[in-house]
Nucleic acid binder design. Structure first.
Lengths: 217, 217, 217, 217
DNA sequence: CATGAATGAGAGTTCATTCAT
DNA sequence: GATGAATGAACTCTCATTCAT
């Protein structure tokens, strides 16, 4: 019985340790993310991250093999989170409504998580990244999300143009244009006050124009 | 008379010197630009630029106060060149045709000069840059170009939507979305073969959709 | 009686524990040795040894005070093993034959256990090592082995030269020259194919030359 | 005339600068060499070398591409110097006398320049080194020196054994054995007082033994 | 005008070692 | 007894920038 109890205790300890380790990993990721946003990936050193956390520089290497893996992890995390949010639109039956919600979610994600968005869609990829094709699964799934909804819109007769691939490309590139200009500070001239609103409106306008004549939903 | 002559001579010399100085500045800029293209702005050191030119690193500081000023100069130059190209569409009378040409020029510029485009629209601005507001004149002029043409399209009844500012924003953000995804390598999934063509088509489709009902040109 | 039994049991446990501890120590040593061979002493970190063993780095410190002591232990073990092998020649009565066997064993040991040989005879000693004079007992015994056989050869009239000390030095230095050049990769120029054979032959030639005139065995 | 004079002055300055640069390179090499000797190649960091010279760590990179090149340069320099010394024996006509002188020079070089000898013949080669085969020219030339003298000794009937290659190998390995044991501190047991003398004697004895019977020079 | 030697700071990374658990 | 997280120092190397010449 003693053994069993001890075994349970050990399991408890092991579990707690694993949890704590995961939490610390998360903490490092969060700090890195925030710094990457402020100064850009290249300008942030592991040392600075460590300083911010009041760790020794070597400590980070207990959680990440190197800087590229840190990038990778944030990248991945970003796409996972992104996918989750996009997926949440699935509850909306009406294809066009769903499409609008996707647009809204996309922009909101970029605005709320610019550090994620930057690493995912704007930052130059580290060389080590390009070789292995892993890490894009969530990204591809999300894009599939978009394409399915586009297909549904076409099938339901909401969109007059019939090519799914091209229409998805059309929508994505426009959304990204707004998001990336915002994040990389090229919209400061535009009175800034209502940029978020302007982007939302632009998105809706784009979708409206995709909708076939005579059938405005 | 001697004095006059000498003075003239001096002016000649001074002129030549100024010309030579400007030429050298240009040469440095061109080399820097080319290197920025190949390896990205942050990855290029002043020493590498100097090596490429077979200059001493100190020499560059005779022409540019620091790396930020080099960035600034290329940025400026890029916008100047960009403006010139966009301006060349002015010869086209028909507003919608001109609009289409602007779109074509925009994409072509991004594709042909990704290093310029990157610095102008994607790269994070050096901190010293944000303070001084100079350097955006050409950029603003170019944007005005766009807005004028949009206004002309509206006036001519080609575009049904009436807000110039918003429509210009609409067009620009979409163009930039395509350009920036291409330059930062996020379109590799798209078969890559015909990305340029796809972008052109998407642009035309966007403009077509902006054109009011019943009046497709 | 219970107490006695428990005491016996405890002794059994203690013994087993001691045995297990020794075994683990041995295991660590073996792994370290093998890694030292592959990458060189300085290039092997304790962490790498621990990883190889699937131990925690801290664990090694339960068996060795520090890296120098690990060096020390392998050094010792190497000399012990070396001594055993050399000792095995004792069964050969004929002094000159024994001498030849010693030479053969020496070279074979160096070739078969370059990691040992390197640590024992080539690698720079850790500073902490030089102070304490312990650790050379087996080495000295082995050298005595050599000297005894040399003495026997002289006594039996095989060697013409009479100084034992000098002759032992003569033989050892020559053997070591071949072994160390081989191990530190300075013999690659010599067609490499038959280096082992060449070394054996050279050793035999050396011994032959030590043999007095008219009395070639 | 002014121009000419200035040109001459410039040449003077350029020359002086080149000389100073070469001197500084030499100084770095000397310092590095000395530190390598004391602590071993791997244990000496560029920082330590820089500190010793009261330079900034970066400065060394103005004279050497990296640590391997520093190694390479010392290696090369050592072999050059070594070759020069060995070559100096060429003035001795009598082959056997020359051979003895070569032996003397070899040992003296190792004793006088242990830091060179260590890097040349004992230290593990950096990986980058093995690939390129450059850098061994002086070494090969020196070995040829030895072989020529051996051949001459054979031709003159001094050596009874006829194989040049094997005899050169024989001589070299023995010399190296003594030198490397001395440098890596394995001769401390031998009363140390007269090790140099013992080595010289051993070398002479070896050569004497190579000399054919009845013809001791 | 141009040089290029020099610097100090800082990059990513690895290390032997310690210590609370 | 064993763990493994953590450290601080060290590593090689690159950088933007300065300044005497």
């Amino acid at each position: 019985r003693l053994r069993l109890q001890q075994s349970l205790t050990n399991m408890g300890i092991a579990e707690r340790k694993a949890r704590e380790k995961a939490q610390k990993r998360e903490l490092i990721l969060a700090t890195a993310r925030q710094l990457f946003l402020k100064h850009g990936f290249d300008a942030v050193s592991l040392r600075k991250i460590a300083d911010e956390l009041e760790y020794s520089p070597g400590t980070i290497y207990l959680y990440f093999k190197n800087k590229a893996e840190l990038f990778f992890a944030i990248h991945q995390q970003g796409f996972d989170e992104f996918y989750l949010r996009m997926k949440s639109a699935d509850t909306i039956e009406h294809p066009l409504e769903r499409m609008r919600e996707l647009g809204h979610i996309y922009l909101k994600f970029a605005i709320d998580n610019p550090e994620f968005y930057d690493l995912m869609f704007i930052n130059r990829m580290p060389v080590s990244f390009e070789e292995g094709e892993t890490g894009w699964e969530s990204g591809m799934k999300t894009y599939s999300c978009l394409k399915e909804t586009v297909a549904a819109c076409i099938e339901a007769g909401h969109f007059s143009y019939q090519d799914v691939e091209q229409t998805a490309f059309y929508i994505w590139t426009h959304m990204h244009g707004m998001a990336s200009l915002l994040i990389r500070d090229r919209l400061t001239m535009h009175g800034e006050t209502n940029v978020d609103h302007l982007m939302e409106e632009t998105m809706r306008r784009m979708l409206d124009m995709l909708v076939g004549e005579g059938e405005r939903s």
